[in-house]
Design a protein around this nucleic acid. Structure first.
Lengths: 345, 345
DNA sequence: ATAGATTATGCAATCGATTGAGTTCGCTAA
DNA sequence: TTAGCGAACTCAATCGATTGCATAATCTAT
């Protein structure tokens, strides 16, 4: 493919008999260029359809305006909302967003971060792959001064800018809600404990049981690789087959919770009377399933937006901004899947 | 933010007492560099943690490896699957994907394409905003030799590479399926007819009615801005309030179809006995709603992947590849929301 | 032994914008 | 009158990789 020639600042400079430096400075509203000159140059630029070559500018400035985003699966509603928020924040400030997905594989994560490194991204937002427990591939960015912000799936033992929700408290509240609704034996659906978010949610679940004086039974605490619908069905089959099946499930995502409802209904269980269920994320499908799924609302879009805003703030700051964690509040949303008692008026 | 210095080919060249050109050629396996030299240079590059500066390479080669992707809403399942496919295809061939969303606004689409132009993307994949009916902002890319591939929401009157599904036939099949199930009065939920996909789907719907000898009634042919759940409810309310309400609905997306089911159930209609419904897209929520939603499966991931593969093929081709349209087949998926008759064995 | 081919490498320009360090010019104040 | 100053520009180097065009070294065939 051949590219046709495009207008450069040299072309504009020649046409106006000024130097390219003047054109560059004029287009950037530099103080040392006269008002009239700026006006003339901008007008000509517009007339000729000039478009800055950001590649050249990036090379010279040693700084691109591309923010790398690494998530596990774009198609998951939570992550696509994250990305949506990031894209919006970036676009508003004149940055682009480069996307890649790890598919929850450590190796993919490495390859993709390397590609980003070659592209000289100016900042990186990461939600870690399920498998990732080691962060050398990311320290590389921090070492060379590229800001890295972790969002949601954060590293366990690495300082850094983070945007998270209060996983511990959210899980505790969700579990306590089930207790309030009369559940006395609550099962737990979680992801790998290597991931901070799942470890925290489990901690919140355990804490709620303790606070309520309920026993902790490891046999109904289940951990999976991906919290898929299949896992939800498998686990529910197992739980309902126990001699003393649980009367409640706290699932750390909605997908598994929904499939639990579907399976439980298919074997004649009433939701929430026989089994009360609460999920996590507030995916659209919560309102589609019957009965509607109680869940923890997770402000994905805002998290994405905040993460990118952090990146930009760090990049554009003169002095070093101290590492910080932004923790967003969640909301337990109570729907029919867990509502056994009528609310008091 | 300051960047620490990184290794360049000059550093490698100095260390091995060769010229930067040799290093560059060695790293690219140029035929004129000796095997031993290549090996030595690659080894040193690895040891020193050399990372190519693609910004510099792009400037010199007048070609980046960033493919721009413009969609309307990342968070829609169909579009996030599209993006997922694109990301995968791009990554496999060493390209990055730059994302932006138009939110179905023409103005946003223009701004975002301009930002892409400044970034000198090497190719562009577009699914048009609902509002867009004019394509000057895209012709700019075509004119300067940047390949543009349209996917799904294609322009009405512009030649170009396209990846689409057979909207006409899919809609016709979906409608005929309802007819076969005994529907005699089928309503239509569609988007603006300015968009080719909706015009085609409507054409397929009409054709099916004609083939079946059924009358066409404009009062039950509904067009919306975004086919949201709200529109679905509004339309269903209207339809069920008619003197002679329809006994079937063909919705051109699943969201509106699902909300139609929910509303119809809420007013005591039986699905599919009183009202048979079929959607379009095969979003995950089809399997969550009760009864499960019949739909048209739309190979979103493959479309994304194919679109990017097209871009890469066009870019890397020596000669000009003639404009072409790739049309993918869809599959009508029959589920309980439209199945009135038991299938014959 | 020598022209000619082959292989391996170096030189220097180039991509386009940015920017530190001048230069020019007119004007003011001493 | 002239040093001094600020406003408005210009010059030229720079970012790092690529590549057309030499050049050098080695080998082959006559």
């Amino acid at each position: 493919m051949k590219k046709k020639s495009t207008i450069t600042i040299y072309d504009l400079a020649k046409e106006l008999n000024v130097s390219p430096s003047t054109v560059s400075r004029a287009l950037n509203d530099h103080y040392s260029i006269g008002k009239k000159t700026i006006k003339t140059i901008k007008k000509l630029a517009k007339d000729r359809g000039y478009s800055i070559n950001s590649v050249a500018a990036s090379l010279r400035k040693q700084q691109t305006n591309n923010i790398g985003v690494l998530v596990s699966w774009i198609k998951r509603p939570f992550q696509s909302s994250l990305i949506s928020g990031m894209e919006e924040a970036a676009r508003e400030s004149g940055y682009n967003v480069l996307i890649s997905q790890s598919h929850d594989k450590y190796d993919h994560e490495i390859e993709n971060t390397n590609a980003f490194y070659d592209s000289r991204i100016c900042g990186l937002v990461v939600s870690l792959a399920m498998e990732t427990t080691d962060y050398k591939h990311l320290e590389r960015f921090i070492d060379n001064g590229t800001p890295v912000v972790f969002v949601d799936r954060i590293p366990g033992h690495l300082d850094g800018y983070k945007v998270v929700i209060n996983n511990f408290e959210s899980a505790m509240k969700a579990t306590l809600h089930l207790v309030e609704q009369g559940c006395r034996r609550i099962a737990y659906f979680g992801g790998t404990e290597n991931q901070v978010i799942y470890a925290e949610r489990k901690r919140g679940y355990i804490e709620a049981l303790k606070l309520s004086g309920l026993p902790i039974d490891e046999s109904i605490i289940l951990h999976g690789d991906n919290l898929s619908a299949d896992e939800g069905v498998k686990w529910t089959t197992y739980l309902l087959g126990l001699d003393n099946p649980p009367d409640g499930i706290f699932s750390t995502n909605d997908t598994a919770a929904v499939s639990a409802i579907q399976y439980a209904k298919s074997v004649g269980k009433r939701i929430p009377e026989d089994l009360a269920i609460i999920g996590f994320n507030n995916d659209p499908l919560c309102l589609i399933i019957d009965p509607p799924l109680s869940t923890v609302h997770h402000p994905a879009f805002d998290m994405g937006k905040l993460a990118v805003e952090q990146i930009i703030r760090i990049m554009e700051a003169e002095e070093t901004i101290p590492v910080q964690t932004i923790m967003l509040e969640t909301e337990v949303i109570i729907r029919a899947s867990s509502l056994r008692k009528k609310p008091l008026d």
